[in-house]
Nucleic acid binder design. Sequence first.
RNA 1: GCCCGGGUGGUGGAAUGGCAGACACGGCCGCCUUAAAAGCGGCUGCCGAAAGGCGUGCGGGUUCGAUCCCCGCCCCGGGCACCA
Length: 840
Amino acid sequence: MTNCPPPYSTVWRSLMINDEARSEVYDPNAIIDKWMTVWDELRTFEARDLTSGYEEQPRSYVVSMFPYPSGDLHMGHAEVYSISDALARYLRMRGANLLNGIGWDSFGLPAENAALKRNLDPREWTYTNIETQAESFRRLGVSFDWRTRFHTSDPEYYRWNQWLFLRLFAAGLAYRKEAAVNWCPTDQTVLANEQVVAGACERCGTRVIQRPLTQWFFRTTAYAQRLLDDMAQLEGKWPHEVLAMQRNWIGRSSGAHVDFAVEGRDRPVRVFTTRPDTLFGATFLVVAVDSPLADELCSPEQREAFEAYRKETVTSTAIERLANDRPKTGVPLGVSAVNPVSGARIPVYAADYVLAEYGTGAIMAVPAHDQRDLEFARALGAPVRVVVDTGAPDPTETGVATTGAGRLVNSGDFTGMDNSEGGAAIIEWLSGSGLGERAVTYRLRDWLLSRQRYWGTPIPIVHCDACGLVPVPDDQLPVRLPETGYTLRQEGGRSPLESAEEWVATSCPSCGGSARRDTDTMDTFVDSSWYFLRYPNPGYTDGPFDPAGVARWLPVNEYIGGREHSTGHLMYARFLVKALYDLGMLSFNEPFERLTNQGQVIMNGKAMSKSLGNLVNLQEQISRYGPDAVRVTMVFAGPVEEDIDWADVSPTGAVKWLSRVWRLTGDLPDQTAGEADPGLRRAVHLLIAGATAAMDDRRFNVAIARLMELTSALRKATDRGPGAANPAVREGTEALVRMLSCFAPFTAEEGWQRLGHTPSVSDAGWPEADPALLVEETITCVVQVNGKVRERLDVPTGIGESELREFVLTSDRIRALIGTATVDRVIVRAPKLVNIVSAR
RNA sequence: GCCCGGGUGGUGGAAUGGCAGACACGGCCGCCUUAAAAGCGGCUGCCGAAAGGCGUGCGGGUUCGAUCCCCGCCCCGGGCACCA
């Protein structure tokens, strides 16, 4: 980005022309166009870059999670951007060279569904909506630097998605495997785990089924430990619950790998367990029914039973499989294994309660000390062997597995040990014998990123019969989506791109023979995992992002968005940034320094969404109250992270306040007269200090409360105090208008102009509270008797402890209160509080 | 089941160990007005005529002092959930 801000004079003069005939009624919607134009002309919200002499200015980079263009902006958008814009404007006014980026997350399923429904091109729907939203953002007065703008569905953007994919592919971080995937029969696509809610498709609510398919993955599991460890950097800067959720999602658990020899197989079966101390109690093994291992181990005699069971499992829906109160089922595989410590021959089962994708896909079952294993053992008649004496009743009789601590029993040489020490000893023995070792497993899965959809980034791989998977060379990127010759609706989950025969047919970049393009597109979370790297230079053509721009602005200082992205988007972005760090493309390993989650806007306790109907329409609210009042209402409603019930808040209250400010700015004469009123000045500076502290803590609702107090103080001073001409009134009003511009930019600009200034008020800076004025001469001291407030006395601020004690104890009123009671103790916290403790 | 939040007037919320209820919404009263709206001003936690008492989900604890810290419980919201 290159720019230097233009001089104000010429632009401003041209805009002054029609201002003579200004209305005397506050009309918030009448001033929108005027200030939109001024900000554009003055380039008020453009970041300054290195070439224009601003290299010394501290920089700040604010990003709100970019919007998906589903129609026009709604109430939820207005909330996020009211908050992020208040923050951006504040940081800017405090002197930061600020970059506030905007783009669109414009690939994704809704465009395709809309296109199918209305029989049009997804591009048309997408880009029309983007234009609508862009205009709405401008009319909402959001201080974006519009030069950052791009859309992920632009070939100039998704080209770099492909490029990044190829770098990960080369690094072994992108790979293909067949997996049982979540399949939505209605949308005809694979879904990520995060897109499956309670066993149903997040989008259409259809029951999701399991289905094997060869899919592309990113190896996020390779970063599990670092995703966990690097959270240390985020502690205290990200919401606590987001970190907790991510920790949960990664699900680190430590224990051991144990190898069980299996008859008729060279290699042992490896299991993961968190309870190596219970190894002597492992009375059978269970292998995930849908794993290749189960298929391999199955004996010919059991084949028929196994196949029947497997078929039943695979066709069962995710809901059924996820219900954990369902009876345990399984089949014996007809082979036996050897418990490595006890030497006991134990049977091997296949069951659906063991997950193929977690751990090794096989477990050692210890029914005495694991409830699930116990239920399975009882259902299939497998033996139970108690090996930890916890003092609880025998699980064989109660049907309740004992999971507590205790002493090892029936455990060979380890008998008698405390179970935690015994576990360590068993691991040591296993390691020494080459039969196992300490191990850590994670719940986190690899990122399934291929989608059988049209409106996404084509995967830049060519399938060649001779050469296999061949990356598309960088100089042939982007692999553009075909604009014609495809059919969106395909049967049986085939990608729409398969129907674009001309597009699919290509030549192998390696051998030149005929080959086929990969027909899957990428999950849109790929697009959103790095967009913030591109804002500093969205037109950059030599790579996905401009290294100089990234060095200048990244990492993102303030990231604002919804809590729903805690384990999805935020995890993916963290992963990708770490991968790019390892590839030497970035010098930082966490993308977002500080994260703020805003709540949702609800109505009468009900969430608003497209399916449930947007109960409140943003544009209607704006036309009724004006953009500023809507913004103020959003921010004043409560702490940013709390939900806002629109039924509980009042845009009319905001309108009333804004028009009070507006009238105040019109009531001040051009010239001040007399001496500044000292009481008012102190009040003004106290309120500036209060608002500033609240802004620093991101407690915007409290900051607005201080501005409202300031408004009242100034109104009162004008009407019944030192008068509108008093310099303190002007000083306070100017401070008010400057601070107001963070929340109500249109009204603030208008007020600033009415006060006789040239725009932009955003360039006037945030007012500084004068510390000298914050000190008062006297202060109200609270006097408590036995912890209850009984009296308030004015005392000098600088009063000493003993002096204050004396003063209070000798005051007539206090002596009357104490009466004949004995004073036991006097706690003095000069100058604010004295507590007299008397015995009863 | 496990892991996080949260519970304060009629309502949204302030106060993070020291005056509970800032700032608003709503309500009531007054001024202005022929009238209404707007505006401006006052009152508004509960009980009580008042004096005063009570009061931050419930019970305990620590402290001179607890909305705030600790222990137990109840209720509400969110996340994860057959993860071995």
